[in-house]
Design a protein around this nucleic acid. Structure first.
Lengths: 143, 143
DNA sequence: ATAATATAATTAGTTTGACTAACTAACTAG
DNA sequence: CTAGTTAGTTAGTCAAACTAATTATATTAT
């Protein structure tokens, strides 16, 4: 890997991301909540309550897409929608205790699948992946 | 990142992979061929002709899913299906010249989007991402 | 040799998550 | 106060994933 040329890196990362997601989908299916939903729950858990628009932006999807996701989550009592105090158009979406529990559950299931595989890597390789994940987030950010 | 604990790494990678794919989807949409299709084309280009089952396994999807993808690709003349010489049930799926060209085109478009962002990283960081991509492929492999 | 089983690919039908477009309600500037 | 903007929803479409069922061919066992 002498040059670390952008085209190669982009392609390799793209393929690797596709594979990784397909590999963990199995575990996510078992959790009963899909990856996008777990991701949204995770944002709400670690980032706190949020408006729909902000959540959509954080997850890089349209408001319409997020509206549906949140409705589904609400239907399963994993999040609660409350009216914004100041802006009557606005929502304050927050995770419920059940949602938090299920997110942790999902994380654990995902781990159960990935753990065996990550365990085969060295400590250094895992650290490398962790660092790469941070870089990927930066690279994926909007301009 | 003192501990590089598997749960954290798994979660971070998962989220990073989701984000990255959503970020590049924009470019892939422009290419006229979706990420899964480009991925299959890429496998066929670099790995050579393949049966449907083998291709499905390589892409970690069911045969039914791959059958549809390949049919669509065939409809656009990006791949050709030929009967296997030895096994009349089997297919020999190969990329056409058009398919190869389009795959390169897709790669370039993806690059146009990611290039600006990857360019902001240092050479070392890009190398780190390239190495991470290889690790992700290993981690995503079936047992 | 033939019957049973397994494998390759396809088809039908469902689900999920993504999109755009069109809408209502509410806030904000001029 | 009316224009325009912003927040969220709804309807309708599409692609990609799944399972289950079907057809055709191969393989294995009796």
């Amino acid at each position: 890997m002498a040059r670390s040329d952008s085209l190669e890196v982009a392609t390799a990362l793209h393929r690797a991301a596709i594979r990784l997601l397909r590999a963990v989908r199995v575990a996510d299916d078992e959790a009963g909540v899909s990856a996008p939903k777990l991701s949204a729950l995770s944002v709400l858990t670690f980032g706190g309550p949020s408006s729909l628009t902000a959540l959509a932006r954080a997850e890089q999807v349209t408001a319409a897409t997020m509206s549906k996701l949140v409705s589904d989550l609400e239907g399963d009592a994993l999040v609660a929608k409350r009216a914004d105090r100041d802006d009557k158009r606005g929502l304050r979406i927050e995770v419920t205790a059940k949602g938090r529990a299920l997110m942790e559950e999902g994380r654990k299931r995902r781990l159960a699948l990935l753990n065996t595989r990550l365990a085969k890597l060295t400590r250094e390789e895992r650290a490398q992946l962790a660092a790469a994940a941070a870089l990927m987030m930066r690279v994926s950010e909007a301009e």
